[in-house]
Design a protein around this nucleic acid. Structure first.
Lengths: 134, 134
DNA sequence: AGCAGGTTAACGGAAAGTGTTTAAATTTTT
DNA sequence: AAAAATTTAAACACTTTCCGTTAACCTGCT
């Protein structure tokens, strides 16, 4: 019936779509209307979005806001600040300097450009030393 | 009201629990029985589990199995193999050598020890160059 | 034994989610 | 512009989830 938050139908449609089929083709295969495939696909994607949101919430439970990286900051300065704040509350960041800068670059590419932060970044630290950004 | 796949009640209970309250204390606060808190907490965790499962499924749609790292392999050898296989199908891995080894170590710590893989690892590659392991 | 924290099972009512159809509208492709 | 693909809305039966209650059970502890 259900696995995760997607129904059988929803997973089925997503698989066919990834395989490149059109909604009409899928409708023919599973014997229904193309409008129905559309709504199923849409609700499937909505459910995926919710799943993501849920995990974000869950992980954030275990996290504290430790600092804000202001717009225009240098990435190197930013990581120094992050280490300093983490030290204050006695948690060891589980990334070295390079990994940390890469994570900022990779996870929020829209917020930074080369060495400088393009937009304010909120930094959260989890008890296990993991970080996440908003 | 819902956000993600958790209900308001479920998020509320998870927050109180992370804050260290007992089920009885929470029951007193939100005026219900401790048995109810228990079931709400339980279904909340179940929903979190499903959310995780859902994302695993979704990401796996976009992934191909590229190789198997056999038990006993050296981590450095393993990453070389991964790069080679990725190259074969024309996708650039979005991690450098060090990041890659760290990811293997961090994501499946139970399957490796220092430089050597303790248990067979299946490696999957996504179209955007991201990797995941089983 | 008593107590506190947690878990389980059964049940009911309310709320939300799902698959479907039909019909109209919009976007993309040829 | 015509055809194909996709999207949207409304309505309907059906199923599932959710919150809550009650009452019992388990475990560790003093």
């Amino acid at each position: 019936m259900k696995e995760g938050v997607l129904t059988d139908r929803q997973r089925e449609v997503l698989r066919y779509r990834k395989a490149g089929l059109t909604q009409q083709q899928i409708a023919d295969i599973i014997q229904t209307s193309k409008a129905n495939i559309c709504t199923i696909e849409k609700s499937a994607m909505e459910n995926v979005r919710r799943a993501r949101e849920t995990l974000d919430f869950f992980y954030s439970l275990d996290a504290r806001h430790i600092c804000t990286i202001e717009k225009g900051s240098d990435l190197l300065e930013a990581s120094k600040k992050i280490y300093a704040e983490a030290e204050k509350i006695g948690i060891k960041v589980r990334y070295d300097n390079i990994q940390l800068m890469n994570r900022i670059r990779e996870e929020i590419p829209e917020k930074n450009k080369s060495r400088f932060v393009r937009e304010k970044i909120e930094v959260y630290l989890k008890n296990d030393g993991d970080l996440y950004f908003e």
